[in-house]
Structure formats: structure tokens, C-alpha cells
Design a protein around this nucleic acid. Structure first.
Lengths: 185, 185, 185, 185
DNA sequence: CATGAATGAGGGTTCATTCAT
DNA sequence: AATGAATGAACCCTCATTCAT
């Protein structure tokens, strides 16, 4: 529901009540409980939709690249492109992921995506094996890349006019350099 | 209030009601409304306390370093040390910063600290001027450093046994390398 | 509607929503509102159907008996036989009768059946006139007989395996004795 | 809460919402959730209170009687006296007991009181052993006595002016006679 | 200074009913 | 005839805050 995304971005996860969402969509709030299992499911559905999208884009980008460094660059570029093209959705999804807690109080964003982790660590490990990267800790590298990319989203959130392509032109070389990559062999 | 920090970390910002906090502190919840302006002020006070602490530590570390690259490394090390020594407080403060919205719906974490930005950008700019760093975009560099450090906090949150000193040993060289720093001239 | 009876018995009058009834019947809930005036009418229809059935059976049994005491025994036996053969329907009907309130808040089960009362009081009065029964209060006698029979339904509800024929073998002599009847003159 | 009893009697269990109860009590509905665990607990508390009262009265009456038949008569008289003196409470308690279902859909009134059953069956069994009563089925006898007494409550509910003492004068000899008791040895 | 009873607004959800298809 | 999407009222409950004690 677009209204859910807009509402979450406007007033935040905690104040995104069914009443607010419904009002923004111009419908009765009971519809939400009717079409979804409840508020929870609606927001989790938003997350799922968005994160599936970003995963698809990044995987496709990675698959089209030749060597580990190029794959990492493609991953980052794909991520930033997705953020550029689906800014609102991404902001909402991250807001939800960061704010949502399951019944045990476990934050959603701490439940990491194993696939994404494996993809990233695999690229780094391959790069190290191929001599493109330094001998870095895989967990630290993976965490840093993800958070650095998240920084781009935050920038875009602070200032909607930020050019994410240009941001990538700056960030991607930094990430590669961080891993010890030398462009000119 | 320590109880507030524990409660926020346990159940999250959203569910951290005055009743829960007061119960954990063993007091009546009306005391909180009595001593603080309200729930809002209590949580903002927690943030302020913690972020003032991290700022003091990082500033002191930076002041003791000689050249820009060393200052940047000292900043990161100071930050990670503070996280190591005040893990619970930091987690709660970030949870609050991420979840809290002011009356206009503006998230607190988007209200950046100008001083911290200036400090970081200054170090990077100095490093570039001194030939220690490449010609990188100051905003991208600053954002990336902060988010990379935040990644360490997230790691520590996922797994409390993570060795943040070792994490820094890995991360700090990455950050310097990202900026084009060459340890051996 | 059989589904309505099953639902009422399963979850009770209060929770027997149209959604539940329709789901159990495998139809859309809007059909119920379409074919009946509403939920209210559906349940009242169930009551009417069942209570008409019990009335028919008891009247027929009474008509076939010769003297007042035999008629009272036949009434009780007919009632218990009906409960035995239509246990689910009776339980649902009583549940509805007990739970339903009209718009004024008047419970349905307090709206006594004048015909049943007249039938029972007539039998008792005839028995007194014929010297079969003691000089008992007609209202007390009638009320007690009905409630004693309802006790059998409750028993059957608590334990579905209860033998209602055997229950009648015990109860009917008690009822006659209560009225002062002496089997052997 | 007296308002809860009044409301249940007025509009029935199902329509006795917190809003109605609070309105009748002249308080905010949130108080109820504050003082009690919830609506459920409030109503169960009413039941408990009332049924504890009736149990105390009947037990005391029974204890003061000499032989089994006198004990049974005392039980019935005690019950009817309690109904006379706490008519509203009893009506509400029975309404709740009959209408309430636990989470499994189990009606509350089917969860019989083992103590009351044992008390009643004990009196009947003693009476049989002492030769005061016929050889009747204990379960049928017990169930019939209870339901016959409940009939008095129903009568009183239909017509508030009913004289329950006179009702008892009629009913108690019936009950004893039903069990085969002969007053004049 | 501390308390707990009380409040009223707002939360998500359920429900019988309506209506265009 | 049958449907499912949509509704709005009512449901119970949670909450931050107030206030007399």
C-alpha cells in the first residue's frame, strides 16, 4: 500500500496508525485489517516487497560482472540505483526494519539476511583469493560495505536532491580502496 | 535513568512505556512525569547524556593525535572504545535517535550534529591538503566513516561477544585506505 | 442452518459471527444477510424450528396418554426423547434462548411459552382434581418440572454419553413423587 | 462493581460493554481495565463473589441441620434465602456463568462445582443410607435439585414480586417427596 | 517528594451489513 | 442467486498525564 509507505515516511513507524494510513488512502481503517492480517503484516509486506526488489537488482548486477572487484562495484551501484529509483520505498522499508520489534522484543534489522551476507562475503573472499583485495576480515568488510551504502540512503533522506549516481562515483572507489584494491594492477 | 536505557533496549522505543520503565526502576510512574517534563524529555536526556559522552571521548582522542590520518584513526578508535565501554547506553541512544520524531515528524537521527560533521570533514580536508588522503568528496567521506562505525555497533548488538578492539584493528585501516592513505608513504 | 447450530455450540452465541457460520457452511457470509433478514433472524429461526419440534413431540406424547399422571410422564419422556434425538439442536436453541436479548434488553428465555405453561399446569391441575397429585402450587410445579427436564439437557451437555432414557427412568418417578403421586394408589 | 451487575442484568452479558458499565458507574471505562485485569476478570470476579456467598450461606444452613432430609431442606432454604436477599447479584452471576465462554469455547456453567456436587450427593446418599430417601440415582437427584432451585431464580426474574419464602414452602416438600421422603415416618 | 487513582485520547481489531459486480 | 470488497460503529485495551492525598 502506497499510503502506508507515505505515512511511515511522513510521521514515522510509531505514529503510522491505521487511522493515519487509512486517512491518507481515503479509505476506512477496517479495510486494512480486512485485506491484510493486520497492521503488522501490512508493514512486513512492505519490507518484503522492497527488500526483494533490492535483492533482485543487486543480484542481477553482480551476475553481469566479471571479477570480484567488479562484482562488488556492481553490487554497490545496483543498490544505489535502486535507492535512486525507489527512494520512498527504501526509506520506509528501512524505517520499518529499524523500528519494528517482534513479540520477543527482537528488532527486525538485527535478523540479518543470510543470503546477502553470503553474497557479500563471497565476493570479498573471492577478491582476496584472486589477489584483488587485501586479507581483510570478511565480517567487518561485509558490515562496512552495507553500512556505507546505507549512509547514501541517509544522505538522500536528509537532502532529496543528492545525486546518488555521483555519490556512487565517490563511494565505490572508496569501498574498493578500503579492501586494498589497486585499479591499476 | 538506567531503567529507561534497559527498557528501551529490552522492548524497544515504541513499547518503552512509563509503566515499564517505572516498574523496572521500582518506582511509581508518576515520578517520571514529576521529575522530567515528560517521557519525551527523559529519552532526549538519555540521548544527550550518551552523545555528549561519545563526543568528549572522540574529541580528546583526536586532540592527542598529530597528523590528519592519525586524528581520523584516533576518532574511530575513540568511538569504538566508547561503544565497548558503554554498549548498552549507545544501543539505547541510537534506538531512541532512530525512532524518535519531533512534532513535525522529523526523525532525530536526520538532525545531524554540525560539530561532529565539521570535525570529521576538517580531518579529511586536512588530510587531503597534507597529501595523506586522495581528493575525496568530504560529505561522502564523512558519511561513510560515521556509518562504518555505526556498523560496529550493530555488530556488537547482534553478537555481544564481538571484540570491538579487534574490529577496530580491521576497520581503521580500511577507512584510511578508503581515503587513499598509504601507511608507508 | 446446520452450520449455525454447529457454530453456536462450538463457540457460543456471542462469538458465533456470520463469518464463522458462513465459513463452516462453505458459503459467503453475505448470503446470510441476503437470505435472512440478518443474523438475528437466522438464530431466531433456529430456535423456532427446534422449539416447534419439541412442542410437537411432547403434545403428541401427551395426547396418547390416559390420565394426568401418565400425561405428565409422557410429556417428560417425550421431552427427553427429543433431547436424545436432537441433542445438538436443543443445546444450540437453549444457548440462543438464554443469550439472546431483544432490543429492550429482555432475555428471550424469560418470554415463556404460554401454551407450554398452560399444558403443564393443566396436567397438574387435572391430576390434583383427580386425586393423583397433592395440592401443590401450579406455578411452582410447572417451573420445577421444566427446570428438572432442562437439568437432563445440561447433564447431556456435560457428558455426551449420558443415557437419557435411563435418566428419564430415574427422573420421571421423582417428578411424579414430587407431586404426591403414589404409583400403587 | 455494582454497576457491572446492574449492567449485566439490564442489557445482558453480551451487550455489557465496558463503555456501558462505566457510563452507569459514572466513571471512565479505562478505570475498569486499570483496577481489574480486564473485562473478563471483572465479570469472573462478580461470579466468584456471588457464588462464594451462596456457598457460605448454604454450607452454614446445612451444618445446622440434624438429619439428611433436614440438611437438604436447609440447603434449599438457604439457597432461596440468598436469592431473596441478593436477587440482582444472583441473576447477574447466573447470566455470566451461562453466557461466558473461556478461550476454548467451553461454557463456564458446564464447569461444575465439585464441592457443591459432593455436598448434595452426600446428603442424598446419607438419606438413602438412613432410610429417609428412596434408592435414587445420585447424579440425577443432585442435578434435579439444583435445577429446581434455579427455577425459583428464574421465577423471581420473571416476576420480581414473587415471594421466595412461599416458593420454598412449596418447593422443598416437593424435593423431599421426589427423593421418597415421608414426613410422617 | 512520592504516590496511585483517575482520565480521555488513541491504539488495533471485529463485526453485521451494504452494494456493485 | 451469489459474491467479496468496503464500511463505520463498537469493541477492549494501553498510554502519558494530572491531581488530591
Amino acid at each position: 500500500m502506497d499510503a502506508a509507505i507515505a505515512t511511515v515516511n511522513d510521521v514515522g513507524y510509531h505514529r503510522a496508525s491505521l487511522a493515519q494510513i487509512a486517512a491518507r488512502a481515503g479509505i476506512a481503517k477496517s479495510i486494512i485489517s480486512y485485506h491484510f492480517e493486520g497492521k503488522e503484516q501490512l508493514l512486513l509486506y512492505v519490507i518484503d516487497e522492497v527488500f526483494t526488489g533490492v535483492e533482485k537488482v543487486t543480484r542481477a548486477a553482480v551476475a553481469a560482472a566479471d571479477d570480484p572487484a567488479a562484482r562488488l562495484a556492481a553490487f554497490a551501484r545496483g543498490y544505489l540505483t535502486f535507492v535512486r529509483d525507489h527512494r520512498e520505498e527504501m526509506i520506509a522499508a528501512v524505517e520499518i526494519a529499524v523500528s519494528h520489534r517482534d513479540v520477543d522484543g527482537m528488532p527486525l534489522y538485527l535478523a540479518e539476511s543470510d543470503e546477502e551476507n553470503a553474497l557479500l562475503e563471497g565476493m570479498v573472499a573471492d577478491g582476496i583469493a584472486a589477489g584483488q583485495f587485501r586479507q581483510v576480515d570478511l565480517t567487518v568488510a561485509r558490515t562496512t560495505v552495507i553500512h556505507a551504502l546505507d549512509g547514501a540512503l541517509t544522505r538522500s533522506q536528509i537532502d532529496a536532491r543528492v545525486d546518488l549516481d555521483a555519490y556512487g562515483d565517490q563511494l565505490i572507489p572508496m569501498l574498493l580502496a578500503a579492501l586494498g584494491y589497486r585499479p591499476d594492477g
